[in-house]
Design a protein around this nucleic acid. Structure first.
Lengths: 386, 386
DNA sequence: CGATATTTTTCTTGTTATGAGAATAATTGA
DNA sequence: TCAATTATTCTCATAACAAGAAAAATATCG
């Protein structure tokens, strides 16, 4: 373990503190992180000189003594851009250093590898121009639906059909800013930790649904990647013995019961009228289509069973559900709760809160912002979250 | 993050290297750990001065240049004692610093909290005398069937009926050596990592059976304890919807299908002749008692289902099965393999090896040794593995 | 047999972090 | 205005890593 790592670690912890609790004092940072006051002072100075952190006078406290300085992330100091590459679209969001999104857009994408670097290069330039904010682009985070190595190589992205692409190098050439790449599910979980419902929760399990079901294990304050980077692919937890076939080739996975295509197919099979989008599904449910409500209830039961297993294994304080399923909360939650009641270890489930997070629908593409922010704060070279 | 932590971390890594690969050179330690050569040299010197590590001349290599020095853990340098407290017995083992057990014994125990510190104090003194080896007792590790806090407080041990016992303080008073306490399942997993089948494997899932079923998650080179220390209680994974009742109050847990009492009860129910011990069960199985073989096969299927879930969640390179069930490998493995084939994600299960480890039956009570060794190596004060 | 090349380990020197405590700065209340 | 109080910065000591030179120990070649 190197010496610079500990500075990096402490810098990250302090930045995180300031971001989640604007206007903290150095004294409180010391109290909450346990880092020595000299070290906090020194790191704050460094951030301050770089213009990343501002010192604000704080309203009088009616207490004797030197008043504290409120510390905030300086919003003017630079931009972070998040890019999310999916099968048919590429999403962009520009955000200030505090993670607050300034503007976002999405463009159609044919999924072709050829020319994607230039495409993203132009897209990033445009979104930066569009938000009309001065300041350097401090980092670009790219969220990808596939498995990445520590060295920034995309090993395999099934929905894109890409294999063995050195994404960090490729996008770095086109981008003129530090590039940070990562798996979409893990990036989304980081976004929940940094900006969302899981803010500052050191241990939680994240699940999201969309065209598939993904997830991440957030353990001891960091994403757990596992020996081969596949850990946390929670869409493939087995939930129904000899159940539906999954695109992965196995049967009984969670994914075909909860993903948009899986739900649509089941509804189509039962009604002869296949929904065209998740929004379509929700509209039918809101119109009290009993078949749709029933399919969603069943999905909730299956989801609840998967969550029960996770609760019994991790005893997490929080399970966070994001993506499409967050908007289906009214239809899913009852079944999820029933399953938890029935299947999870009582002494464990009492400690676990299950929440539906709208973060990814309200502010899409923040996964990339989380990736980049995590990298930028440590003041070191581009790296990867596989 | 403190400065001393990084020395501790590096010291531990280097010691571990020497233990698992006796006669390594400093050069190879540098190559394998990435720690700088100066640092390795400095830490080796420190270990050498303390008498913990020896430098051995190595047989000529027929290569030019200064020959390497082989480094080994000095077995004479001191003793580690492992203590394992169970419902009806207390086990002791004395081991050299390299973890090799010198002698062990067990004594009957009435489970009463009163006087247990003195009892263990005498027991440790006796085992140290018995093994007839000079040298200080460098550490005593105590493995307990319950949940512990970071501060060395045993919160709750159901099988002992103990609650809120400050075990580290209590045993420290009676023991005249640094005391390290920890949960039995987690300690056993550490023993597998340090001395057993999982040696040097940074990510694995550990399951063991005995009077109950426990386990541990070994992730990124360390036990994952979770927010409340309950993580890894794998005996309570739900495997059979509306299944057998578990002592924890829930139903469908793994534990009643795989633990000795669970198996005995089922065999007793089917044959009218309840086995009195796990050995008894094994003898009947070896005598081709078809009911017993069938019950074990069913246990294997249930176990396989639990392992499948774990594989899909963690994608671990290794799943290690210990305790009683290790001796039942011939009767369990076929069903486990069948379940894995059927339930686990194919692209994940191909990366996972499932092994049965005899470590805890061949050399019992090593969990405590692992606890103590882990603490002693870092050269710091007594602590706890909750 | 001696010189040289080679390999491993240690030493020297430099840089950077943390950590403890003194000093300074900025405020309130008497 | 002066003490009391509180927050932050500064100073100095200590410890750790890091890079490279130096030393130690051996094999091989002439």
């Amino acid at each position: 373990m190197s010496k610079s790592y500990i500075r990096h670690f402490n810098a990250n912890a302090i930045f995180h503190r300031i971001r989640i609790e604007p206007n903290v004092s150095q004294r409180d940072i010391v109290a909450r992180t346990g880092i020595d006051k000299s070290v906090v002072s020194s790191i704050i100075n460094q951030f301050s000189e770089l213009g990343l952190v501002e010192r604000n006078p704080v309203a009088t406290s009616n207490k004797p003594g030197r008043p504290m300085e409120g510390l905030t992330i300086s919003p003017e100091s630079g931009l972070i851009v998040g890019v999310q590459i999916e099968a048919d679209t590429i999403g962009y969001v520009a955000a200030a250093l505090d993670g607050i999104p300034l503007c976002s857009r999405a463009q159609a994408f044919d999924g072709k590898l050829d020319g994607v670097a230039d495409l993203v290069g132009r897209g990033v330039k445009e979104i930066v121009g569009e938000c009309g904010r001065a300041g350097d682009t401090l980092g670009v985070g790219i969220s990808l639906p596939g498995l990445l190595t520590d060295e920034g190589m995309l090993l395999h992205a099934p929905v894109l059909g890409w294999r063995g692409v050195p994404v960090v190098d490729m996008f770095s050439e086109a981008l003129d800013a530090p590039v940070f790449a990562g798996n979409d599910g893990k990036a989304a979980a980081m976004a929940e930790y940094m900006f969302g419902e899981c803010i500052d929760i050191k241990d939680f399990i994240y699940l999201f649904s969309g065209s598939g079901v993904g997830g991440a294990l957030f353990l001891d304050g960091d994403i757990y990647r596992g020996a081969s980077g596949l850990a946390g692919e929670l869409g493939h937890i087995k939930v129904v013995p000899q159940g539906r076939y999954c695109s992965c080739g196995a049967s009984g996975c969670l994914s075909p019961y909860l993903s948009e295509p899986g739900l649509a197919e089941e509804i189509g099979r039962l009604t002869g009228n296949r929904p065209t989008s998740f929004k379509d599904i929700m509209e039918r449910a809101d119109a009290k289509d009993e078949v749709v409500v029933g399919v969603l209830d069943n999905a909730g039961a299956v989801l609840g069973s998967a969550i029960s297993s996770l609760v019994n294994i991790f005893n997490p304080p929080l399970v966070c559900l994001g993506g499409d399923m967050a908007s289906a909360e009214p239809y899913l939650r009852p079944a999820v709760e029933r399953a938890l009641q029935r299947l999870a270890h009582p002494s464990m489930s009492v400690q676990t809160k299950v929440i539906f997070s709208q973060l990814s629908t309200v502010s899409p593409f923040l996964g990339g912002v989380a990736l980049a922010l995590d990298g930028v704060t440590g003041l070191d070279s581009p790296h990867v979250l596989p």
